[in-house]
């Protein structure tokens, strides 16, 4: 073998593979540091001072949340507005709200929510997406769920439904009874309200804007 070129030498390709992999990994780790800082949870002071966090602190449950078109970013973003009562209170301390969110997040895993629903669009596709379910018109004052469950507020209707889902069938596909207690239901609703305040870069698009659709199009 007179002229062994570098291209046909496996050591060259082995080194290339190592370098490419190493470079991609380092870039990913660097981006991870940046992203981690941006998605760390905010706190109560941020909310009081109007500092926008991609993932607000747990006390966001003390506030009204809406989902509005942001002209600058070209898509919808969650907007945290004035105070709003949540189970009759709007003065949850950081500890109280944090404990509720903790209970709710644990509950979302302990009940396998993600294996029927999608959370932030990830999970199973057997039941509706829960990313912005807190903002869903179905649970609002004009929606059907409050009158169906006989409750006056969104959070109470949601908590009632979660405890006795098969009593309130909304579709042939029903949610099963998962043994959710009253306390767990409250935590889960706090978890859902908190999730709706996360900045998801405009996912889902046009949420709740259009009420009817053309079938089979």
């Amino acid at each position: 073998m007179a002229n062994k070129s570098v291209w046909s030498d496996n050591r060259f390709w082995q080194r290339s593979a190592t370098w490419v992999t190493g470079f991609a990994s380092v870039l990913l780790i660097w981006l991870t540091f940046d992203t981690s800082a941006q998605i760390s949870m905010g706190d109560d002071a941020d909310l009081k001072n109007g500092v926008t966090k991609r993932v607000p602190g747990p006390t966001v449950i003390n506030y009204k949340i809406t989902y509005e078109m942001d002209a600058k970013r070209g898509h919808e973003v969650p907007v945290i507005g004035e105070k709003e009562k949540f189970f009759g209170r709007d003065d949850y301390s950081e500890e109280e709200a944090g404990a509720l969110l903790h209970l709710g997040k644990l509950g979302s895993q302990a009940k396998n929510c993600m294996d029927c629903h999608t959370l932030l669009g990830n999970g199973a596709y057997y039941a509706p997406d829960l990313t912005k379910s807190w903002l869903d018109p179905a649970w609002g004052p004009e929606g059907s769920m409050q009158s169906m469950t006989g409750k006056d507020t969104k959070e109470e209707a949601m908590a009632e439904f979660l405890q006795h889902p098969s009593q309130y069938p909304t579709h042939a596909r029903m949610m099963p009874n998962l043994g959710i207690t009253a306390a767990e239901a409250k935590g889960l609703v706090a978890f859902l309200k908190h999730m709706s305040s996360i900045d998801t870069n405009g996912f889902p698009r046009n949420f709740g804007k259009i009420q009817g659709a053309v079938h089979g199009k």
């Binding site: 002209a71 600058k72 070209g74 405009g202 199009k217």
Partner: peptide, 12 residues
């Protein structure tokens, strides 16, 4: 004046 970006919707 704020720069406005309108991300075009994908037509149905």
């Amino acid at each position: 004046m704020i720069e406005t970006i309108i991300r075009p919707e994908i037509a149905l």
